[in-house]
Simulated scan of single mutants.
Amino acid sequence: MSQAALGRPEKLNWVTVPLIVLMVFQVLAVILVPLVWPLITAILSGDTTLASQDVQLARTVTGSAIAVAEVVQLIILVFTFLTYRAVVQGRSWGRIAAVVLFVLNILNFPFGTLLAVFGLIGAFDPDVQRYCSR
């Protein structure tokens, strides 16, 4: 069944596909961020100029930072998923949230910028705006 038959505008894919790609990137970040910990531990263990207390403090701070980054990545992933669902359902807050995500992703050069440009073009399309006015 075509999108026109479902009442969905043609450029809705310009919003939903970048959101799906952003979700894939977030899943990869959630998986890969913890893998930094062994690398940092190995670097700190090999540094003979640091005192053992400094190494322990660095490990604690780094471990905490990685844990916080993991939680933030999960929150962003859930928010992106909820935004995707809202856009597909035609909710106005979903389009607004997608615009916010795309504007923030402009800074993620080069792939985030490319996704953001396509997403913003789709989000500001008049048909998509009408579709997302519920």
Results as ranks from 00 to 15, higher is better:
P9C: 07
Q56P: 01
V117T: 10
I106P: 00
L39R: 09
E10Y: 13
R130M: 12
V88W: 08
D127Q: 08
P18C: 04
A97M: 06
L120T: 02
A65P: 05
T41P: 00
T113S: 12
T60R: 11
V15A: 03
I75R: 07
W14K: 04
P18Y: 06
G90A: 09
V99Y: 05
L104R: 07
A58R: 13
N108A: 15
L101A: 11
L32N: 10
V87C: 14
G119W: 05
P34Y: 04
L101P: 03
R91I: 06
L12V: 11
L22G: 01
T41S: 03
Q89M: 13
A58I: 13
L107H: 08
Y131S: 05
F109D: 07
R8Y: 07
F124Y: 10
V27Q: 02
Q3D: 13
V103F: 02
I96E: 05
W37F: 10
V24C: 00
P34L: 01
I106R: 03
F25D: 11
A86D: 12
L114D: 05
P18G: 04
L74R: 12
V71F: 11
Q26C: 01
S133A: 10
L50R: 13
M23F: 02
G63C: 09
V33Y: 01
N108R: 15
V117M: 08
S64A: 15
F111I: 15
I40H: 04
V78M: 03
D127K: 05
T113V: 08
T62Y: 13
L101R: 06
A42H: 01
R85D: 09
Q73I: 14
Q56Y: 07
V88S: 10
I121S: 00
Q56H: 09
V88P: 03
V27F: 02
R85F: 06
I20C: 10
Q129C: 07
S52D: 14
A86L: 04
R134Q: 15
Q73L: 15
W93G: 11
D47P: 01
G46A: 11
V103G: 02
A29L: 08
D47N: 14
V17H: 09
M23G: 01
L32E: 09
L114A: 15
T113P: 07
V27P: 00
P38L: 00
L74I: 15
A69M: 11
P110S: 06
G7D: 08
